[in-house]
Design a protein around this nucleic acid. Structure first.
Length: 252
RNA sequence: ACAAGGAGCG
């Protein structure tokens, strides 16, 4: 059954509904057919693949759904435009943990219901780092830089995810120095924060600074290369873009 | 063992 779990995660990650259904068939015919753990992963897989009907059916077939089952279903609904159904699941839960609350928060944000998100955020019994960062992303992804910074300053703790979200918000709004100071203040920069900073310079039109930072990167991956390439494209420096394209390790 | 938050193209 850990093999099934691995297969289902691959299907989820690659949005492969066809393969996911095949795995589901295999599970049904195996002796793990009543395994709640696997059923939960099936809900997740169907949700990621956009099949709300099958996610619902799988959930309904679980004799005793646990908190994971409910949270997977909430996410499946919220991510596929059924916020009202997500609410119904949420309301039906007896004990609502911080993950359930945060999943609903995330659902409202994906529907751009920022006011509802704020209401949930302030009304929650508990908030953890993910909750705070989810609320932060509501602001950063919708152009509320002041609100984002205000929330960021009040966060009890933060990590790479929160720092990178804030870094991007500064960069996108033209505050490159503030973005850079977050970048420099990170305990250790990872590939995503590097790419976000490079992209920030490129978007601001400072392609030279983007290139300089890129040159300092320990191990640029294809995402970083593409971001830089796009920066040269936007800057109309097609010669440099071509050079970058040929310098890329795997240019396909 | 499984759930919620951060990067480019598609």
């Amino acid at each position: 059954d850990s093999q099934f779990a691995k297969l289902l995660k691959v299907c989820s990650d690659s949005n492969d509904l066809i393969k996911g259904r095949l795995v589901h068939d295999q599970i049904r015919r195996s002796r793990c057919h009543d395994n709640t753990f696997l059923a939960n992963l099936l809900i997740q897989m169907y949700g990621k693949c956009g099949s709300v009907a099958e996610a619902t059916k799988t959930f309904d077939a679980i004799p005793r759904p646990n908190e994971f089952s409910c949270n997977m279903l909430i996410a499946a609904y919220a991510n596929n435009g059924h916020i009202n159904r997500a609410e119904a699941v949420f309301d039906s839960m007896g004990q609502k943990g911080v993950v359930s609350w945060t999943s609903m928060l995330s659902g409202y944000i994906k529907h751009r219901r920022i006011r509802d998100a704020e209401r949930i955020f302030h009304g929650m019994p508990d908030r953890n780092l993910v909750t705070w960062t989810t609320m932060l992303s509501a602001y950063t992804q919708n152009g509320y830089l002041d609100e984002a910074w205000c929330l960021f300053e009040r966060m009890p703790s933060c990590d790479m995810v929160a720092l990178t979200a804030m870094l991007r918000a500064f960069a996108e709004n033209g505050y490159l120095e503030e973005a850079r100071s977050i970048f420099n203040g990170m305990p250790v920069q990872d590939i995503i924060s590097w790419t976000t900073m490079v992209k920030g310079y490129a978007q601001a039109g400072d392609i030279d600074q983007a290139q300089r930072l890129f040159d300092c990167m320990p191990e640029p991956n294809v995402v970083c290369w593409t971001a830089l390439l796009q920066g040269y494209g936007d800057a109309q420096q097609l010669g440099s873009a071509q050079r970058i394209f040929h310098e890329m390790p795997q240019h396909d």
